[in-house]
Design a protein around this nucleic acid. Structure first.
Lengths: 168, 168
DNA sequence: CGTGCTGTTGATCCCGTTCAATGAGTGTGG
DNA sequence: CCACACTCATTGAACGGGATCAACAGCACG
């Protein structure tokens, strides 16, 4: 598992007929479908659209590189915290609000999918959720609904070093 | 560290003035420099160039996703083997040959940079090099020159599962 | 020489995996 | 309605791979 698509994301690859990955729906979805030939014609005829697509792709590349840091450097707890704070921020954007204490959202993914995405096992995922709950950072209703009790703390736990670690 | 640029790679981001990462030269380099305004004008006026840049970016995105699998799922030995086989293949391309037993190339990076790139410590990097040498997969001259003794074996050690692991 | 930097090797520790049991929720058939 | 099976999640115990701490080797430099 190499990515998580959320509402408004684009999927597909103009100029190539095979994709290196499958795309699997985790929930019911509504897709806006463009037929390949006409979409590619649109790109050819409308440079501004092509430029926008290049922008989006570059943003995705930035996001992918962010994620490399998560996968390469972070502990289990930091990964879960990173994952949750991404969902929280994304969710806030969709609701046109700011992330705030007490906000809650659904998890969409099973523990197995989360584990796969974060590069760890379902047991560790489960343990870290429990640990964050016990520490009062989040609370859990059932197995899929998360409430953020302390957003600042959650960001903190995600451990996005502001300094590169190179200085004394 | 989120990427490794090799000869012929493109660096920079049209349409944005700040880059989220620094680019550091590990060796002497020759750069082909485009001034931003004129390059962006070129993109505007020459859709085929813009299309090509989109292609390159999409390829980079694929590569970044490949790398997520390395960082999320592979053991120390597999990471080193993956790293070496990428360098070996890339090197073969530059020399217009196929990867073959006995081929050798320079490592460019210090142990520290390798460790950072692969998401592990310099000690583990060092141990895995030693282990691969003792197992006859590679041989080492000094600290920077690698000879591939058994390329098939090296690919094997990289552990790129051909099946997704989902079937019985 | 000594000093600094890079890399190797050894010993120990700890986080996350692995293996295993149990719980909780859901759908199926008697 | 309950027993059963099945899936998903939690929890516990033990193990092991890689990190951490530490000593040392090779090499370039003043």
């Amino acid at each position: 598992m190499v990515g998580l698509l959320l509402p408004s994301d684009f999927v597909g690859r103009p100029g190539r007929n095979e994709a290196p990955y499958d795309v699997v729906a985790a929930t019911d979805v509504t897709l806006c479908l463009f037929r390949k030939p006409s979409f590619e014609a649109l790109l050819r005829d409308t440079p501004s659209v092509e430029r926008r697509l290049l922008e989006l792709t570059l943003d995705e590349l930035d996001a992918a590189r962010e994620w490399m840091i998560v996968l390469g450097r972070k502990t289990a707890r930091e990964r879960i915290a990173s994952f949750l704070s991404i969902l929280a921020r994304r969710n806030a954007v969709l609701n046109r609000t700011q992330p705030h204490n007490g906000m809650s959202f659904d998890l969409i993914l099973t523990r197995e999918a989360i584990a796969d995405y974060l590069g760890m096992t379902i047991e560790t995922v489960s343990r870290q959720f429990t640990a964050l709950r016990k520490d009062g950072v989040i609370s859990l209703e059932g197995t899929r609904k998360v409430t953020v009790m302390d957003f600042v703390r959650l960001m903190d736990e995600a451990g996005d070093d502001s300094d590169g670690g190179m200085l004394g």
